[in-house]
Design a binder for these strands. Structure first.
Length: 268
DNA sequence: ATACCTTTGAAGTCT
DNA sequence: AGACTTCAAAGGTAT
């Protein structure tokens, strides 16, 4: 109830048509995340063309020729991709993709002393690999299953809101002296809705670039690759929690906030 | 040690 | 086609 009221108000304010499509705006604009998607059939710009055009900084020849224009091979290029980890601190300014240290040769090349793994590639566990001696003790099926399970996971590219959260989290933590992510995320969700269309557009654009680069780096990757890899709570419990109208109240109680003042001063 | 909480958006599956 | 589900991040909390 509370949430719905707040969000529908934001929807109206920001010309966001409701999910049902029954927008009241005379000429309802599509949500930004839809509007930012290129129409089907429109050829995508190459990374160089797309990312370099708004930025005057010329691309280093080795990157633009060898790493960007050619079809990218995942194992060879994982280290080149680091928009998320390497650049979010620089937001809200746009990232200079081809001059960013993480995109330069040497900073992320496998085998290079300074190689930094791509943030989207995460080993399934921090545990050390079995030695060949130990592996011999396992059956083929077991080791095959184990090998499959130990394959590094390529994470989903971050969406606009995730990028926004990543940038703003520290600020909110500092302002609100809260650390629990669930509470921080509620605040960030409210702030996200309070952003202007232009401010949000910045993050939708970044997210679009993230997806585009992710697609180039991992051509065969699909979101279904990670489906079911996390153990999730039961569906019943999920529905209960997501439709629980008392959630903000519970949250305030949980974090000792005043029920009357809604949120602590800076956390609006 | 690991799932949960909490948010939005993208992309998957299901009906 | 539209509804529903999962996963991206984060870190404290609960089991």
């Amino acid at each position: 109830m509370y949430k719905e009221t707040v969000y529908s108000a934001f929807n109206l304010l920001m010309h966001y048509p409701p999910a049902s499509g029954a927008g009241q705006h005379p000429q309802p604009q599509p949500p930004l995340h839809k509007a930012n998607q290129p129409p089907h059939g429109v050829p995508q710009l190459s990374l160089y063309e797309h990312f370099n055009s708004p930025h005057p900084t010329p691309a280093p020849a080795d990157i633009s020729q060898k790493q960007v224009h050619r079809p990218l091979q995942t194992p060879d290029l994982s280290g080149f991709y680091s928009l998320t980890s390497g650049s979010m601190g620089q937001l809200p300014h746009t990232v200079s993709w081809f001059t960013h240290p993480s995109l330069m040769l040497g900073s992320g090349v496998p085998g290079h002393p300074a190689a930094i793994p791509h943030p989207a590639i995460v080993p399934p566990s921090g545990k050390q690999e079995l030695q060949p001696f130990d592996r011999n003790l396992k059956t083929q099926a077991e080791s095959k299953a184990e090998k499959e399970a130990k394959k590094p996971t390529i994470k989903k590219p971050l969406n606009a809101f995730m990028l926004y959260m990543k940038e703003m989290r520290a600020k909110v933590i500092a302002e609100c002296t809260l650390k629990e992510s669930a509470a921080i995320n509620q605040i960030l969700g409210r702030r996200w809705h309070a952003l202007s269309r232009e401010e949000q557009a910045k993050y939708y654009e970044l997210a679009r670039k993230e997806r585009q680069l992710h697609m180039q780096l991992y051509p065969g990757w699909s979101a279904r690759d990670n489906y079911g890899k996390k153990k999730r709570r039961s569906r019943e419990k999920h529905q209960e929690s997501t439709t629980d109208p008392g959630s903000p109240k519970k949250c305030r109680a949980r974090f000792g906030l005043n029920q009357q003042t809604d949120w602590c001063g800076p956390c609006r």
